[in-house]
Each structure stands twice: as C-alpha cells, then as structure tokens.
Design a binder for these strands. Structure first.
Lengths: 249, 249
DNA sequence: CGGTGCGTTGCAACATGTGCAATGCCCATT
DNA sequence: AATGGGCATTGCACATGTTGCAACGCACCG
C-alpha cells in the first residue's frame, strides 16, 4: 500500500539471508542507490539494521527486542505456562504450545523434561504444518472453505513414509481431528517421534492455541503415549477455562 | 531520514507495549487515521504486524522469523558454540556469549549444565551493562573517548551493594579489565552469582565478542571460580584463533 | 429506529521521496 | 607519489507517492 515503507521492509528479509552492501540492496530492491541509502538509514535509526565494520548492513539488535516483547505479550502463553510445567512434572515428556497466524503455525512455548526452557529456536522456522499435531488442531478449527483453501496451497513433503501425502488426505485428517477434539502425529515428521495434542479454546469456543506432548518411540510406544491423552486433554481444558476468564480472582 | 518509513517503524515499539487499535496508533503517531491505516496495512503485508480477532493490531510472527535468521547469521556465534559446549562439559556452569552493538550488550548464545540451549529469552532485555562481566569486556575495548561518552550516559542501578555505583568507578573498572584482559562480576548483579569472562578477538585484535562463566555462590566460591580463569581464557583464545581464520581447512 | 464510535475509501493539494549527476573517500595498482 | 576504479554520499529539480480531509459503511446500543 505504501511504496516507500514497502521497499524499506523488503530490505529486512533480504538482509536476513546475510549481510549486504548498499549496491546489492539497491539492486535487489530495483531502486537507485541513493534511495536504498535513505531507507537503510531510516532502518538503522530504528535499530532494525546494523552497519558492521566492513560497511555492510545486517539485521540489528532491536529486532530481538521486538520479537522478545511480542512473545511476552501473548497472553495465552502466560496463562498456559504453569499448566504446561505441571503436566510436564507428571509425565516428563516434551510439551509444546503453538498458535496459528496467517498461514503459519508457530511454537510459542516449550517445556522439556523438568527443565523449563523457551525454545525460541523453533520460532520462525517453518513448522511441519501438514503433519504436526498442533498444526492439525489449529487448522481443523477453521471454516470449511478456509481449510480447503489452505490445504490446496500447501506442499506435502514426505518427511517419512507416514507423512500426510496430499490435500485430500490432509482434509480428511482435519475432519477427524475436528470431530474427536484431539490430534496425533505418529512418526509423520520424524520416524521415531510420536505426539499427541489437544486444543485450547477461548470463551467463544474457537481454538486459540494448541498443545502437544512428544516422546520418542524408544521411551514410550505410541499406545502408551495415547494412554496419556486424558491428562493432556484435562490440561488443555484447564487452560481453556482460565483463558476464558473462569478465574474468580 | 524518510518520514513515511520513520512513522511506520515507530509503530513497532508502540505495538510491543501491547495490542492497540487504529485510533490509538494514529494518536500516538500524531497522524491522521487514514495514514495510520495505510502504514499498518503495509506492515501487515510484510507480516510484521498481525490483526487479531478483535481488530486490534499486535506484532506479527514474521518478526520471530527475522530475529531467528538474524541470530543464525552471526558467524562468531557459530564458531564459538562448539567451544562453549566443550568448556561447559569440563566445568559444568552456565556459559554466555555476548556482543556489543550500538550502546547495547546482547547475549547471543548460552550453554547450560550439559544441556545446550539457546536462551533467546535474555535477548532484547536490557543487559546489566554496568556490571556484567561480558559488558565490561566489550566496552573496555572501545576507544577512550567512546568509553567516556558511554559511561557518562549510562544509569548505574544498584542491583546489589556490590554494583558499580557511578561513571568514575565504571571507567576505572574498564581500565582494569582492559589492562588484565579478563573481567569479573562478583555479586554485582545478583548477590549470590559470580561471573568470570574473557574477550574474543578478531584478526585485527579488536574485541568482537565476550564470553563468561556464571555460578552461584552456594556451588563454588568466588575464589574457586577464579581458578577456572585459565580454562576460560584458553577457550576464548581458541575461539579468537578460529574466528581470525587460523583454521587450515 | 436514530445515534455513536469505529474502520474504510476517493480525492485533490502538496509535501516527500525519487533518480540523476557530481563529489568525496578509500584502497589497490603503477 | 600519482592514478584510477569502486564505493558511499550529497544537493537538487522534478513528479510521484503520501497526506489529511470529508464522506461513507458498518456494527453496536439505547
């Protein structure tokens, strides 16, 4: 909508690939160098871009600050975290919390084996949207036309032999998940890893987030993992209740 | 330099404080609503801003992606990481890696007790620049006028009784650090935590990063921690050598 | 049914961003 | 030392893109 801002913002993903000098930026943007210079200066003033000693530009520190603050403002995460820790203390496996946002599924919290850690390392990387249990839960709640539209657009990489292969199979899977109110990923992403997940709903019943428990085959079989389902669902429901405001403070 | 981009980017820190609607954004920017709308739309198209179900805007997921890619492109971090892990296996305590960038000190890696984790949670939060061992190392390498200018501008919060209280004391500390080539933080940030750190230098001898080892009083006394100094310095020097290109591939 | 508080759109005026050409700067080459 | 090429940087005239305005649409509420 705004050409100038559009150009300026296009610089960011470009620099994310690696440092670049003024000429390279100008060329990739298809603008004059002097224009690129001014845009870079403005980005620089806001700390989004940093000029390293060899004069080349790269992404700046303010970006971390913003990403950090952004994640802290996700109130689902805040509410969910203690519940996730509690569940983790009971069953010990890795627990993820994820949200859906504009065609992407995003991990926003992780609790691992008695060791509470925010694994931001997953954040931003493309989540295996076609196979992850949390992704199925989040997409299953969308309207039928939305699901259809997304399913058509997706790629279906065969991470393993058990990955979901195409849109038709994916839509069937989403229907099942929608029906039963929980989801699994049995070796669909990594051969030896199984997951079970449950949805977290807001006051209006819409799915606002999803959580999952992951464990390697060698520790627990898929059947054993499924016996934990009631606990996982109870936790998800507890979070849903609290998120919906059922906490008489 | 560019008014439009400047305005657009000013929206980001604003939204970092929490979600806001169009009117609020326009007011804080001191522009007409229609202008704010167009800027927000452009930010939205680039995924930096997300429009939640109540129509209000908040920071978007692309921000994480960018921050993630940015940190992965810091090649010091890549080179240092295995060394940090190795040192951690020897001594077990928490190890940090940090860089300096435009008046800020920024953790870019962390290794904790046999458990390699990127703790991005520290990133973006204001590092205790007046007391942290890594901050002293990074600032000590700046030119005398630069050090002076920064020292004057800083605040000196008294986290504990042993925090550095003012610019004069800070400059003395930096001189010492510069002289001896290593730094400590003995309870200056948290009463019971001690740190020792060493600088990582590029081919030209300039300090490009700093690493530190932190341990609580109850586990090791400050004196015991100091006995690890030779190991820490050796690790920092190994990283410096490799970073300077002393790796006959 | 009218009113109020939002977000949204089309438009005309002009401020702003743009590309160009010239300059300055650094480094490598002779 | 001197020369030249590559790069960032600056000032400027032009016109393009941005701006604020006023009007509209829409949902919610009395």
């Amino acid at each position: 909508m705004s050409q100038t801002v559009d150009r300026a913002l296009s610089i960011l993903p470009l620099l994310a690939e690696g440092p670049a000098d003024l000429g390279q930026v100008a060329e990739r943007l298809d603008v004059h160098k002097s224009t690129a210079l001014r845009l870079l200066r403005t980005l620089h003033e806001h700390g989004l871009v940093y000029r390293q000693s060899d004069q080349r530009y790269r992404l700046g520190a303010r970006l971390f600050a913003l990403a950090q603050e952004a994640v802290e403002n996700l109130d689902v995460r805040e509410i969910a975290h203690p519940h996730l820790v509690e569940l983790n203390e009971q069953i010990g496996h890795t627990i993820h919390l994820a949200v859906y946002e504009e065609n992407e599924v995003l991990y926003i919290d992780k609790v691992e084996s008695r060791y509470p850690v925010r694994m931001y390392s997953r954040i931003g990387k493309p989540v295996a949207i076609t196979v992850a249990a949390v992704a199925k839960l989040l997409l299953a709640d969308l309207s039928e036309p939305e699901r259809r539209a997304i399913a058509e657009k997706l790629d279906y990489p065969m991470y393993t032999a058990r990955s979901i292969p195409n849109a038709a199979a994916f839509l069937r899977e989403l229907a099942t998940v929608r029906e039963q109110g929980w989801a699994t990923d049995l070796g669909g992403h990594e051969e030896s890893i199984n997951c079970i997940g449950a949805p977290i709903r807001g006051a209006d019943g819409r799915v606002v987030a999803a959580m999952s428990v992951s464990a390697p085959n060698v520790v627990v079989t898929a059947e054993e993992l499924l016996t934990l389902l009631p606990q996982v669902r109870r936790t998800a429901e507890a979070i849903s209740r609290e998120y919906s405001g059922h906490t008489p403070a």
